[in-house]
Computed example of a mutant assay.
Amino acid sequence: MKRLIRIAICDDEPDSILRNKEILQACTGRMKCIADMITYTNGEMLLSDILEDNFFYDLILLDIEMPNISGMDIVQSIKPRLPNVRVIFITSHIKYAIDSFELSIFRYVPKDDLVKRLTYAVSDALKLIMLENHKNYLVVTANRMEKVSFQDILYIQRDGKNSAITTFHGVIKVRKSLQNVLEELDAEEFIFIERGCIVNLIQVTQIKNSMIYLKNQIELPISRSHLQGVKVALNSYWGKRI
């Protein structure tokens, strides 16, 4: 059964909301996605729904230049609550592009090439969301059985005879070796960065100075023997999906 993809569109110009929604509907229809779209004419309403009413979104189309609160400020506020949300920034000014990359924005779309660029951006985001949505790791212990979504896993570390799976919601320990867990995951998203640690490439934002940076401002060291292989794997993973 397909999971509903929740999408928000936030722009202070009603005509822009309508254009963005039409492009979204064309993309979701072509890709046969089941999507729920909610529109906002100001950033405060979007923030309130997410931070106060716990609304969840997979994808947000967001204008950067809006009264009272900018798209940049909105993303900084919601990322801790929705670490895996894909955000597509839409703006008339290219000067914001560098700042948007620093916020790990999925894509940056200029308004002067909206139809073509937004269509590509939305299609790529939907492909990635659908790919990740159906992947889960089954955790079975003596007193629990739980499905953990791949997109919720940050990294996995050796903890004595256990493997500690760190997720956005806490740590789950299983009495298995890291190699056994990796084999059970059976997915290219997960790779060793050193002998005692596996990371989820879904969560990686950058590699710098032998450190790998994940969402939630997590930094982990990469061993010298693994560094080149990690770079190659990440480049291949990003190249296939973005």
Rank of each mutant, 00 (worst) to 15 (best):
R86Q: 14
L114D: 08
I88L: 07
F106C: 07
L47C: 12
L62H: 01
P110H: 03
E102P: 15
I64N: 04
I98L: 13
N84Q: 15
I64V: 09
V75E: 08
N68E: 15
V75F: 03
V115T: 11
K79F: 11
A97W: 00
D49L: 04
L62R: 01
L59D: 09
L51I: 09
F89R: 02
E44M: 14
L62Q: 01
F56I: 13
D49G: 08
I69S: 11
K95T: 07
R107C: 05
G43V: 00
D53N: 14
Y108K: 06
F89D: 01
N54E: 14
T91D: 05
I60H: 03
D112A: 04
D112M: 10
K95D: 10
L47V: 10
Q76C: 05
L114T: 13
I74A: 06
K79R: 15
S48A: 09
S77M: 13
R117K: 13
F101R: 06
V109Y: 00
A121R: 01
I64F: 10
S104N: 10
T91P: 05
E44I: 14
L51W: 10
F89T: 00
F89L: 03
P67T: 08
I94Q: 15
V75S: 03
F56Y: 13
D73W: 02
F55V: 12
N68Q: 13
M45D: 12
I74G: 04
K116N: 15
D58N: 15
L61M: 13
